[in-house]
Design a protein around this nucleic acid. Sequence first.
DNA 1: TTGTAAGCGTTATCAC
DNA 2: GTGATAACGCTTACAA
Lengths: 335, 335
Amino acid sequence: MKLNGTTISDIAARANVSKSTVSRVLNDKSVVNQQTRKVVLEAMESLGYQANAFARSLASGRSMTVGVLTQKIGSPFYDMIMQGVIQGFAGTGYSPLFVDGQWEESTALEVIRAVLGRKVDGMLLLGGDLPEQQLNELKERLPTIVVGKEIPGWENQCVYIDNISAAYDATKHLIDFGHRDIAIIQGIKQHQDAMRRFDGYAKALADAGIELDPGLVLEGDFSAQSGIVGISSLLMRGKSFTAVFCANDMVAYGARLALQRHGIRVPEDVSIVGFDDQGESAYVTPPLTTVRQPGTEMGAAAAAGLVQLMQGKPCVLPTLQAELKCRESVARVLR
Amino acid sequence: MKLNGTTISDIAARANVSKSTVSRVLNDKSVVNQQTRKVVLEAMESLGYQANAFARSLASGRSMTVGVLTQKIGSPFYDMIMQGVIQGFAGTGYSPLFVDGQWEESTALEVIRAVLGRKVDGMLLLGGDLPEQQLNELKERLPTIVVGKEIPGWENQCVYIDNISAAYDATKHLIDFGHRDIAIIQGIKQHQDAMRRFDGYAKALADAGIELDPGLVLEGDFSAQSGIVGISSLLMRGKSFTAVFCANDMVAYGARLALQRHGIRVPEDVSIVGFDDQGESAYVTPPLTTVRQPGTEMGAAAAAGLVQLMQGKPCVLPTLQAELKCRESVARVLR
DNA sequence: TTGTAAGCGTTATCAC
DNA sequence: GTGATAACGCTTACAA
């Protein structure tokens, strides 16, 4: 790992060729004499040459960098996606530049500006709620793909799973196990995923001929704390229920804890299903039945698609399926 | 959010000044006439100017970017640190460029090369085990700070907590509660943190006059699975123990699950303490008693220190303390 | 306080 | 196949 400031000229001199030729072998595109190429390569090797990415970008107009806007580095689900994104770009020559929008529109706009100043060749938006106009301006300007959200008019530039049918399946699973009084603790209200998960829940109930009881739908914000609050509210009001569908796994953890605090057993007395299948969920007690979102695959698919787009090729994004992981937090209700 | 390719010349023309002047107001450093500055600023505003970071870096030699080598984006503890790093750089003008070493030396070296090609002004190393020589070459070349690890000869360039005394405290807590047969499920063997946590455990036992029973020390790798395996091994061999100190929280989750599978209650029959205090730990059942590592603070401190270093100032890194969070996974042993 | 001009390390366009 | 040479957009002495 030599760490010097060797430039293209140095190696040109060393190899007795012109800068142009060096540049050619560097970019591998145009044809260079086998022998010449070899000499140049050797010169690079011995001088420990490392191309200056800035000079390259400035001259070529391409940065080989893509901006990745996250909403909160550190959230379990987006971490999976980020992993996938990293994997997806590995070996493509593009480097992801992560910036964090912190769930705030103004912050998001600001970091996007910053990243545009770095002349990224493309943009990956992980979740988040940018105003439509900004979104479209972005899309106009450079290849952009959105992960974890469906946006009208962005067909083929969004990677997401069908939250409605995933939530439908989760709820139906509960119904199949004999549950009828199924509570739901929701995610952040304006959040697209949260709304769709509710819709799926409602639809499953409707299809099973179960009337939706507003007293069983609780607000929440994707946090464990909101799971605790949700259960407490239910209990305090004396609502009877045998199952809870949680907006995500963190909410499920909180719900499970609150239940146990009240001496209510999971799954014997109350069943729980979560959403996301974050890493811990297979190991909590009882192991959580939850909807697995293929986060890694989503990230990787988005990255791959973006690379296609940046190379001017059309891109086809796969339709990814969520999958219900049946573990041990759901039991058949005794009748 | 205008997204055009306006350059310094455009705004120079618009403001009837030279490029140099525009550059001056851009960099805020040298003195510019109040009136002139105002005109230039207005021109920038109206044209939606966004400086080209590459051209800037190429000309100035500074990139205002720092490379952050992570070991595995997505691991709970490093996520906390990353959060802190992002916060720490916010508003400083520097942007972190995250690259992932994947716990592999060759990968790490490769991504470091890549990041050096991007002419980062500094490096932040989050954990990881680079060979000493590479490390020192790096340090020679540019401001570098290591987080989560103590390296001899890098005094004042490492941010870490004292794992030995943290593990000592955790173990002592168990001892204070009357436990004497305390098992430990370790982290990855060569890992510095893992070794120190073992040392702290051993020291606490020794200080309490408890002989260390090799049959109670289990290998592990920081995964939940290794927690399960550890407990199973203990049980299979019929070892008697009343407490388990786990290398991290994931291991603790696994241990707790394995215990429950065997009908052993936590904390009534066996107490557990973890390490890290990842976000879920306060909400699992029972809420986990664990050592809280101030990950966010560590990341932020490292970032702040690096900024100092990059500006040629000396930096003082704070000594951060781990803290035992007593929750509900530890009980007094009945005698 | 402001302007001129020489780079910074590459790529890209022409000739040769 | 290869080599000049002009960009690329900005910073920075050096003058004015």
